[in-house]
Computed example of a mutant assay.
Amino acid sequence: MNLTISGHHLEVTPALREYVLTKLDRVTRHFDQVVDVNVLLTVEKLKEKERRQKAEVTLHVKGKDIFVESASEDLYAAIDQLMDKLDRQVVRHKDRLQDHHHESHKRTDAAGGVV
């Protein structure tokens, strides 16, 4: 898995990097076929009172790219919201990949044919 963590108008400190890594562990625990992860942490400098912290992630899995973004006044809160959204999308993608329309064991005989 390739991981890129970058900041826009922000220096990515080791504490921020470690926080993102610990949160990403939850996502990779649910789905291990992650190819590439790009995380972008941004501080939008609007007015002094309206500073917005924004976190974005692009997750490249086999066959699909998943993009999620979240904004908050606190960067750590934005990362938490981001990982919650990403976790839901990854679990949904994993469910779609699984074939839920297989033949049940009751419907097949011992020779392997369908009854």
Rank of each mutant, 00 (worst) to 15 (best):
N2I: 05
L3I: 14
L3P: 05
L3D: 03
L3Y: 02
I5V: 13
I5T: 11
H8C: 06
H8S: 11
H9S: 10
L10H: 08
E11I: 07
E11W: 00
V12G: 10
V12R: 06
V12E: 12
T13L: 06
P14N: 14
A15I: 14
L16R: 08
R17D: 07
R17M: 03
E18I: 01
Y19S: 07
V20M: 02
T22M: 00
D25N: 11
R26G: 12
V27E: 03
V27Q: 02
T28L: 05
R29A: 13
R29C: 05
H30A: 09
H30L: 09
F31I: 05
D32A: 14
D32T: 14
D32V: 07
D32N: 14
Q33M: 05
V34H: 04
V35R: 09
V35M: 09
V35A: 11
V37I: 12
N38T: 12
N38P: 04
V39E: 06
L40V: 15
V43C: 03
V43E: 04
V43Q: 11
V43A: 11
E44Y: 06
E44G: 03
K45A: 08
K47Y: 04
K47H: 11
K47A: 10
E48F: 00
K49H: 13
R52Y: 01
R52S: 07
R52A: 07
Q53H: 08
Q53D: 03
Q53V: 02
A55L: 06
A55F: 05
A55G: 12
E56C: 00
T58P: 00
T58A: 05
L59C: 08
H60N: 12
V61H: 03
V61G: 04
K62L: 11
K62C: 08
K64T: 15
K64C: 08
K64A: 13
D65M: 05
D65L: 08
I66S: 00
I66K: 02
I66R: 01
I66L: 12
V68T: 07
V68M: 03
E69Y: 07
E69T: 10
E69H: 10
A71M: 04
S72I: 03
E73D: 13
E73W: 02
L75G: 04
L75I: 14
L75P: 05
A77F: 01
I79P: 03
D80A: 01
Q81S: 10
D84W: 06
K85W: 00
K85L: 06
L86Q: 04
R88Y: 07
Q89K: 06
V90A: 01
V90C: 03
V90H: 02
V90D: 02
V90L: 04
V91Q: 12
R92V: 11
R92K: 15
H93T: 08
H93D: 07
K94T: 04
K94Y: 04
D95L: 13
D95Y: 11
L97I: 13
L97K: 13
Q98D: 11
Q98Y: 14
Q98I: 15
Q98V: 15
D99Y: 02
H100E: 13
H100L: 15
H100N: 15
H101K: 13
E103V: 15
S104T: 13
S104Q: 09
S104V: 09
H105F: 09
H105S: 09
K106T: 07
K106R: 10
R107D: 07
D109I: 09
A110Y: 05
A111N: 14
G113K: 14
G113Y: 08
V115P: 08
V115N: 09
V115I: 10
